[in-house]
Design a protein around this nucleic acid. Structure first.
Length: 638
DNA sequence: GCCGTTTTCGGCCCGACTGTTTTCAGTCG
């Protein structure tokens, strides 16, 4: 293992050993102490002058991906607003950004074949600009626009309660061009002199700057936010008079990362419900509270939570409205419009103004002659077409379908809890089996198991299985896929195991050709049952390694290899888009927890969410089967 | 800037909340 590998392995090690909520704090902490640099988790130079190559992918070949194009379009929208352009023109760029960011396919072919304008919301002007950006790597129009304003101005709109209009005034009147300028202007009492600003605005801006510096406007991992959100939802549900309550927004859609938490509740009197959130444990600040809304910021992670309380007759339409996504809504409202129905958060109204009773979300969809669309699918990625044809899958996998937890470590390698403790935790969750898959010998940094230790572990597994008959521990391994695609144990060992997960942990820096060959070789190995975290990404921390994923999925289908949907919040690997491709190709899946401690068994929920976002049904997911049938299915290799 | 079995021109989602205002503008979702 060379130096670079050590660093990649270290990144994995850090994420494995800090509970997900602590990862970023740990990084920030280390960063402040000068041990880690800005983005990747990697050590500082060992001694002065010693240069460590970055672990992030090679950027020598410029490539403009969907996310980058969407970002440029969003920046243009902002800059146009600063310039005082028409709001509709601004919105066109914003909607274009949404459309591009949400594309299931890659941009390259669309540009090459001139099919950009076939996308709704993309007209001639946007198509031309996107083409220029994708083919040349830059966009003249954007450069010109940017040159008119100081670079720090775009940062300013990320501050709470500061939008383009206020930024424009601050810049024009006070020459404020950055967060630092704004902070100085507030401290010197110059902002309060502007029309539309006052003393309170100054104080709020300063507070906002402090929060911004702490959180850097980052989105948080779903798994980091979910426990806080669910606890608050329970508080709301328990408050006086509540009829119904639910999480909304991107949390309810189970997006990979979320910016904040929405809660929607119905009650005859909103007051006590709003108070319940304002007074909930863990609340740092009440940002605002009115007759029907309350916003708070939590101590944990500067997370913002918004609660809305309405009469129960408006609950279903409000819940639907605040679940989103924006793109899904636009389509839904258009469909309503075709039927003479006006759909808004306040309900469904006929053209004559009379209100249509909508008791729940299912009723809303049936009004439009379509199947119910589960929240995870509401992205305008084909769910409308399917739901109108009646071909939307109705049996998406659920957490209750899952019979066994896949991918668990114990103190035999780098886990925190013993095998027995893991088995007890699985039993408490009602799981029927748990696959024990420690690291293999090459994973020295993670206490990978030597071949000679396996026998002793199997003896222990036999003892625990006898003692806890409700949960069956399955004898497996998470074997390293070596640089040449070979597995880290000889065949004679692999064939004694009940199941084999193969994963890449080192040498992430290979190019696309090498990495694709490495994985294809592993898939051809008849002893491999499951390909673990196939793209190696760590959300907001490490890019996936370069690999031709479609080829991998096709080979997996051909060879009967099962693909892992890893539920660790920082991984979610493979991601939902690939799940959808895999399902189309007939690839079989497992939802996994990648557990390194008892609590991690709950990661199964995030794996299930990712599978659902990729339209996976119960029948696509092997660990919905009882243990014997699960093993038989895994081992049916081709 | 985009879009059209109402339209190639004239629409485009809109209400709550806050802080600034004496009736409203900006931001947010």
């Amino acid at each position: 293992m060379n130096l670079r590998d050590t660093h990649v392995a270290l990144a994995d090690f850090v994420t494995a050993h800090f509970p997900f909520g602590e990862i970023r704090r740990a990084q920030l902490d280390l960063r402040h102490r000068g041990l880690f640099s800005h983005n990747a988790v990697r050590p500082a130079p060992l001694f002065p002058g010693h240069y460590l190559p970055p672990v992030t992918p090679d950027v020598s070949q410029p490539s403009v991906d969907k996310a980058a194009v969407a970002q440029v379009l969003r920046d243009i929208a902002l800059l146009l607003q600063l310039q005082g352009e028409s709001g509709y023109r601004v919105r066109a760029y914003d909607m274009g950004a949404d459309r591009i960011a949400g594309l299931p396919q890659e941009l390259g072919p669309l540009v090459a074949e001139g099919r950009l304008e076939s996308l709704p919301g993309i007209g001639p002007a946007l198509a031309e600009k996107i083409s220029e950006l994708v083919t040349t790597g830059r966009l003249g129009y954007y450069e010109e626009l940017k040159a008119k304003f100081p670079a720090g101005l775009l940062e300013l709109v990320k501050l709470p309660d500061i939008g383009p209009k206020k930024v424009a005034v601050l810049w024009r009147e006070l020459d404020v061009g950055s967060v630092e300028d704004l902070e100085r202007a507030c401290r010197e009492g110059r902002v309060r002199q502007l029309r539309g600003f006052g003393e309170k605005s100054e104080a709020k801006i300063l507070e906002g700057i402090a929060v911004f510096r702490r959180a850097r406007g980052e989105r948080k991992l779903l798994g980091e936010v979910m426990p806080v959100a669910e606890a608050l939802l329970e508080q709301v549900k328990a408050s006086p008079g509540v009829v119904r309550a639910s999480l909304g927004g991107s949390v309810r859609r189970r997006a990979e990362t979320v910016a904040d938490v929405d809660i929607i509740a119905s009650a005859p009197d909103p007051g006590p419900v709003l108070d319940a959130l304002a007074n909930a444990p863990g609340v740092a600040t009440v940002l605002g509270k009115g007759g029907s809304k309350c916003s708070v910021r939590m101590i944990q992670g500067d997370l913002q939570v918004d609660l809305r309380v309405l009469p129960d007759e408006d609950y279903a339409t409000a819940l639907h409205h605040f679940t989103g996504s924006r793109a899904h809504h636009i389509r839904l409202r258009n469909l309503g419009h075709e039927r003479g129905l006006k759909i808004s958060e306040w309900g469904v109204h006929r053209e004559d103004g009379t209100k249509v009773t909508v008791s729940d979300e299912a009723a809303l969809y049936s009004l439009l002659d379509m199947q119910y669309v589960p929240p995870e699918l509401r992205e305008d990625n084909g769910e409308f077409e399917a739901a109108r044809e009646g071909t939307l899958p109705q049996d998406l996998v659920t957490l209750e379908d899952v019979q066994g937890a896949v991918h668990a470590h114990s103190t035999w390698s780098d886990g925190k809890h013993s095998l027995e403790e893991m088995a007890r935790a699985a039993q408490a969750l009602g799981l029927k089996y748990l696959t024990v898959t420690e690291h293999s010998q090459a994973a020295i940094y993670a206490g990978g198991m030597k071949v000679e230790d396996l026998k002793r572990q199997w003896d222990e597994i036999d003892r625990i299985n006898a003692a806890i008959p409700e949960v069956r521990l399955l004898k497996g391994i998470e074997v390293d896929i070596l640089e040449d695609g070979a597995l880290d144990y000889p065949d004679s060992v692999l064939e004694q195991l009940e199941l084999v997960i193969g994963s890449i942990h080192v040498r992430h820096g290979m190019d696309e050709e090498q990495m694709t060959r490495r994985l294809l070789t592993a898939l051809d190995n008849p002893h491999l049952h499951i390909l673990g975290h196939p793209t190696g990404r760590l959300i907001q921390n490490r890019e996936p390694y370069p690999v031709r994923m479609e080829e991998i999925l096709e080979r997996a289908a051909e060879r009967g290899v099962t693909i892992e949907v890893n539920g660790k919040p920082a991984r979610l690997d493979i991601k939902a888009e690939y799940v959808r491709q895999a399902v189309k190709l007939g690839v079989r899946l497992v939802v996994s927890c990648d557990a390194h401690r008892q609590e991690d068994l709950r990661n199964l929920a995030y794996a299930v969410a990712t599978a659902r976002r990729g339209w996976a049904r119960k029948s696509d997911v092997l660990n919905t089967l009882p243990a014997d049938r699960f093993l038989a299915a895994l081992r049916a290799r081709r």
